[in-house]
């Protein structure tokens, strides 16, 4: 059991009295890529928000154990330090906070969590340079405010850049393909694939099969009405692409 990275058991969550997750079960091991698909409103983004600790959602039952740690008891910042990363569907613009200050605060907060001294200015800049290259992120963006005035593609590349810097054990990519043209998609997916090791894992949340051509999943789960109603291999994604979600809805009426 030691090699289970994340074990979600019977997870229930609600937002403003509305139950959205109604018993999620999921097991993820290091080295795996899981795709979570499902029609609009099935709870995909809620699952990622709840795992990341968004205070807008209330967990009403179940558990999530992350490499032996009770994930749900941690603050969002400690979940990050423990190795969880969420790539946002809509990365937030933060006017007045420069990318470089934002990243420095993030990197040093993590170092502090592990009782390490802050990174020197030189080492920090070197780290930024290295990681930017992975997603071909323009250096000019470093002096700009976080995500402010970034194009859709730049925002998503910026997410993967942050993921590269923070080196998470588990990354959740929430609709990372939305708003991307094919070139940007290739760069973003290429970044994700470069960061993949036998030690970390990825959850890819997506509507469409398209992204899965670039990021190959080991498992595909279908989420519907707050539950995982079907799990299969990559072929399940192709089947969904061909047949749509109606048969899933039909089966779970």
């Amino acid at each position: 059991m030691n090699d289970i990275l994340l074990k979600v058991t019977d997870l229930h969550a609600k937002v403003e009295e509305k139950e959205i997750l109604r018993g999620i079960n999921l097991e993820i091991r290091p080295g795996e890529v899981h795709a979570i698909m499902g029609p609009n409103g099935s709870g995909k983004s809620t699952l990622s928000s709840v795992l990341a600790g968004n205070p807008a959602f209330t967990v009403t039952g179940g558990s999530a154990i992350f490499h032996g740690v009770d994930l749900l008891s941690l603050s969002p910042e400690d979940r990050s330090h423990e190795g969880l990363f969420l790539s946002f569907q809509y990365p937030v613009e933060i006017p007045g906070v420069s990318m470089v200050n934002f990243m420095r605060a993030a990197v040093n907060a993590k170092r502090k969590y592990f009782n390490e001294s802050p990174l020197s200015a030189g080492d920090f800049l070197k780290l930024m340079r290295q990681k930017r290259a992975i997603v071909e992120l323009d250096n000019k963006l470093a002096s700009r405010s976080v995500n402010e005035g970034f194009s859709g593609g730049e925002k998503k590349r910026n997410e993967i850049f942050q993921m590269a810097v923070l080196e998470p054990r588990l990354s959740i990519l929430d609709e990372t393909d939305s708003g991307l043209d094919i070139d940007a998609l290739r760069i973003v997916a290429g970044g994700v694939n470069q960061l993949k090791t036998s030690q970390n894992a990825t959850i890819v949340i997506t509507h469409y099969q398209r992204l899965l051509d670039y990021i190959k999943p080991d498992f595909v789960h279908v989420l519907y009405k707050g539950r995982i109603v079907r799990t299969g291999g990559p072929e399940l994604a192709l089947e969904l692409e061909e047949k749509g979600y109606d048969w899933i809805k039909e089966e779970n009426r």
Partner: peptide, 23 residues
């Protein structure tokens, strides 16, 4: 939203609030 975004990157809440106020 900005506060949550910063916290998911590991920035502690108090520091994130401070950064947003400065900003």
């Amino acid at each position: 939203n900005a506060l949550f975004y910063m916290r998911t990157r590991g920035i502690p809440e108090a520091e994130a609030r401070r950064m947003l106020m400065q900003a």
